[in-house]
């Protein structure tokens, strides 16, 4: 009897200790998340503030009301077109990179084309600093007359994202059992049909995840766009920097433009949960 009571006491104490530990971890987790998310909150809050609220000392932590004037200005001045430019360029280059990269990845995954070296060479191209790539590309584009054009940026983003697409898609395709492809070959498919009817449908979640990441990379890029665009095809990150150093009333524009450029990222993160780790670690971690 006494043993039972003692055991109950111990259990109770342990439960209490576990609950406290959990509560402690919870507080810590919430605290850390707040610290990391605060800058994002601040960005959003500024975009909804009136000029008086933005330039108020001490800072206004919560805007009085949510008003969209700052966004309205962007659309009225035509600056919002830069978001559209980004959307077009990122989307089209993603489609190209996905198509070319996926079939190339299949070649690497299934036929080990070029042995180990070709694969390593391809991913190593991703490691070069953009400034090193963009400098000669700029000279080439000046010669071709491609500076400040859609196709100029689209081709560059396609090429720059290809190594990533190939590397990721190779990983996803290697996860597909080879017997399925062999079976399709025997069933009467050509190689192309095998890729189209068997491999791609089975890799579709990988294709989708890779496409979202590729889009995000093109969408987020600054340095290529800074150097290769002027006035015609300015993308939103470049537009954000155009507001720097100007009059302080550009703050609202910086914030509103940045929010417009961040919303697609929110969507990407929301739909990509399962593939986030694999995507950002270039396939090294199959989280």
């Amino acid at each position: 009897m006494t043993i039972e009571i003692r055991a109950q006491q111990i259990r109770k104490r342990q439960n209490r200790r576990n609950a406290m530990k959990m509560a402690g971890r919870y507080c810590l987790a919430i605290g850390i998340t707040l610290v990391f998310i605060f800058p994002v909150y601040w960005l959003f809050s500024i975009s909804f503030k009136t000029p008086d609220e933005i330039f108020h000392h001490p800072p206004v932590w919560f805007p009085e009301s949510i008003q969209f004037d700052n966004y309205g200005v962007l659309f009225k001045d035509g600056d919002a077109i830069t978001v559209w430019n980004s959307l077009v360029i990122a989307t089209v280059s993603t489609v190209f990179a996905m198509f070319l990269g996926t079939i190339a990845a299949y070649s690497l995954a299934r036929f080990k084309t070029g042995g180990q070296h070709l694969g390593i060479w391809i991913i190593s191209q991703r490691m070069l600093p953009p400034i090193v790539i963009v400098f000669p590309i700029f000279l080439l584009y000046v010669w071709l007359g491609w500076v400040d054009t859609y196709h100029g940026l689209i081709i560059l983003y396609t090429a720059f994202n290809l190594p990533y697409v190939i590397w990721m898609m190779r990983g996803y395709m290697e996860d597909i059992p080879i017997e399925l492809e062999e079976s399709a070959l025997v069933d009467g498919c050509s190689r192309w049909e095998v890729l189209w009817k068997v491999v791609l449908p089975l890799a579709r979640s990988g294709i989708f995840a890779t496409a979202v990441f590729t889009f995000v990379f093109a969408w987020n890029d600054f340095i290529f766009a800074l150097i290769l665009s002027r006035t015609e095809v300015t993308t939103f990150p470049v537009q954000v920097t155009h507001y720097f150093g100007g009059q302080s009333n550009f703050w609202a524009k910086i914030a509103a433009m940045s929010v417009l450029g961040t919303i697609p990222i929110f969507i990407a993160v929301a739909i990509m949960q399962r593939f986030l780790v694999r995507g950002i670690s270039m396939g090294a971690v199959k989280g």
């Binding site: 062999e182 079976s183 025997v186």
Partner: peptide, 17 residues
Amino acid sequence: RPRDRNLAMVFQNYALY
């Protein structure tokens, strides 16, 4: 090519799509 040989094959792990 396999497709031109007109034969059918059953695989060890079935290879169902």
